[in-house]
Amino acid sequence: QIGDLVNIDLDLEIVQSLQHGHGGWTDGMFETLTTTGTVCGIDEDHDIVVQYPSGNRWTFNPAVL
């Protein structure tokens, strides 16, 4: 839910696979593998929007978090 702290604890290849159809994966997202983020929103597809200390916001398949 919004305000929750979240981490990704999966291998890169699994995360990339799960992201298909959920915003995809870009090289800029590598920070998300090692950094705790804060849930800042849930979109119309029930994907999770997470903000990181860098100021970046990324959209994830809920199965990734």
Rank of each mutant, 00 (worst) to 15 (best):
G55Q: 05
H20Q: 14
R57A: 10
F60Q: 02
I48Q: 04
P53K: 07
L12K: 09
F30Q: 14
G55L: 01
E31D: 11
T34F: 13
G28I: 00
H20F: 07
E13I: 08
D43Y: 01
E31K: 00
N7L: 11
L18K: 09
I48W: 01
V50F: 04
Q16S: 06
N56M: 05
T26V: 15
E13N: 12
H46D: 15
Y52M: 00
V49H: 04
D43G: 08
A63T: 11
E31Y: 06
Q51W: 07
V49E: 09
M29L: 00
Q19T: 00
G28A: 15
V64N: 03
S54V: 01
F60R: 08
L33Y: 12
L65S: 01
G37H: 06
G21S: 04
I8P: 01
G37Q: 02
L12D: 01
W25T: 02
D9N: 14
T38N: 02
V15S: 03
V49G: 00
V50I: 09
G21W: 00
G23W: 04
G24N: 06
T35D: 11
S17Q: 14
E31T: 06
E13V: 07
G55P: 03
T32S: 14
H22D: 00
G21A: 07
V50K: 00
Q16A: 10
L33E: 01
G55M: 03
D47G: 15
T32V: 13
H46P: 02
N56C: 03
V49K: 05
P62T: 02
D45C: 07
H46L: 14
Q16T: 09
L12H: 08
Q16H: 02
V15G: 02
A63N: 04
T36R: 07
T26G: 06
T38H: 05
I48L: 11
L12P: 11
G21R: 06
I42F: 12
V64S: 06
E44L: 10
Q1L: 11
N56R: 08
N61A: 04
W58C: 03
T34L: 09
S54W: 01
E44P: 14
D9W: 05
P53R: 03
L10S: 11
T26R: 07
V64Y: 04
Q51L: 11
I2T: 06
R57Y: 06
D45E: 09
N56E: 07
E44Q: 13
N56H: 10
P62Q: 03
T36K: 09
H20L: 11
P62S: 03
V6I: 07
T34V: 13
G21T: 01
E44K: 14
A63D: 14
F30E: 15
L5A: 10
G23A: 03
V49L: 10
G55T: 05
G3T: 00
D4N: 08
S17K: 15
Q1G: 13
I48Y: 05
I42Y: 09
P53L: 04
L18D: 04
A63G: 07
D45M: 14
T59R: 10
G41Y: 12
V49F: 07
V49I: 13
D45Q: 13
I2Y: 07
N7K: 09
T59P: 02
G41D: 15
D11V: 04
L33W: 06
D27F: 00
H20P: 06
I8H: 05
L12W: 10
I42R: 09
D11A: 12
H20V: 15
T32R: 02
D43I: 00
E44A: 14
L10A: 11
C40W: 09
C40Q: 10
V49P: 00
T32M: 03
S17L: 13
G28P: 11
Q1E: 15
E13K: 13
R57P: 04
D11Q: 07
N61I: 00
V64T: 12
T32L: 03
Q16R: 13
G21K: 07
T32Y: 06
V50A: 03
T36V: 09
I8E: 02
I14N: 11
G23C: 04
V39C: 04
Q51D: 01
Y52H: 04
G55E: 15
Y52A: 03
G55S: 02
N7V: 12
G3P: 08
G21M: 05
E13A: 13
D27T: 12
C40M: 14
G55D: 02
D9H: 06
I8D: 12
N56D: 06
I42K: 12
V15R: 00
T26E: 12
A63R: 11
G28K: 13
G41Q: 13
D9R: 10
L33M: 12
D27S: 09
G23Q: 00
D4M: 05
N7E: 10
I42S: 06
D9Y: 07
L18P: 05
G37V: 01
T59L: 04
G23Y: 05
W58D: 06
A63C: 11
D45F: 11
D9S: 13
V15A: 07
G24C: 07
D43W: 03
D4L: 10
I8W: 01
T26Y: 09
G23N: 02
L5G: 04
P53F: 01
T32N: 01
L12S: 08
D9L: 06
T59H: 11
V49A: 01
T36L: 05
L65H: 00
Q16L: 09
N56Q: 07
V15K: 06
T36H: 00
T26N: 14
N56T: 07
S54L: 01
H46Y: 09
S54A: 01
Q16Y: 06
P62V: 02
I2A: 05
T36I: 06
D9F: 12
L65P: 09
T34P: 00
E31Q: 00
H46C: 14
V39Q: 07
T32P: 05
D9T: 12
T38M: 14
I42H: 10
A63P: 01
L33V: 05
E44W: 07
D4E: 14
G24P: 03
V6D: 04
Q19L: 05
G37F: 01
S17G: 14
C40K: 07
T38R: 13
Q1H: 15
W25I: 06
T38W: 11
H20S: 11
G28R: 12
W25M: 03
N61Y: 09
D9P: 07
D45H: 15
G41V: 09
L12A: 10
Q16P: 05
L18S: 04
D27W: 08
S17V: 13
Q1S: 14
V64Q: 07
G23T: 04
V50W: 03
N61S: 04
D9E: 12
I48V: 15
G23V: 10
G24K: 01
D43F: 06
W58P: 03
L5R: 14
L33G: 03
V15I: 13
T38L: 10
H46G: 15
Q1P: 12
E13M: 10
E31W: 05
T35Q: 09
G23P: 00
Q51I: 11
V49Y: 04
H46V: 03
T38I: 14
D45T: 11
Q19D: 02
E13D: 11
L5Q: 14
Q16W: 10
V39M: 08
T59A: 08
D43L: 09
G41S: 13
I2W: 02
Q1M: 15
D27Q: 14
C40R: 08
L12M: 12
G41R: 13
Q1V: 12
L12V: 13
I14V: 13
A63I: 08
T38Y: 12
P53Q: 05
H20K: 15
E13T: 13
H22G: 04
H20R: 14
V50Q: 08
L65T: 05
V64C: 12
L12N: 14
V6K: 03
T32C: 15
T38V: 15
W25C: 05
V39A: 01
I2M: 14
G3V: 00
N56K: 06
P53T: 00
W58R: 03
G23D: 03
L12T: 07
T36N: 09
T38C: 10
E44D: 11
L18Q: 07
H46W: 12
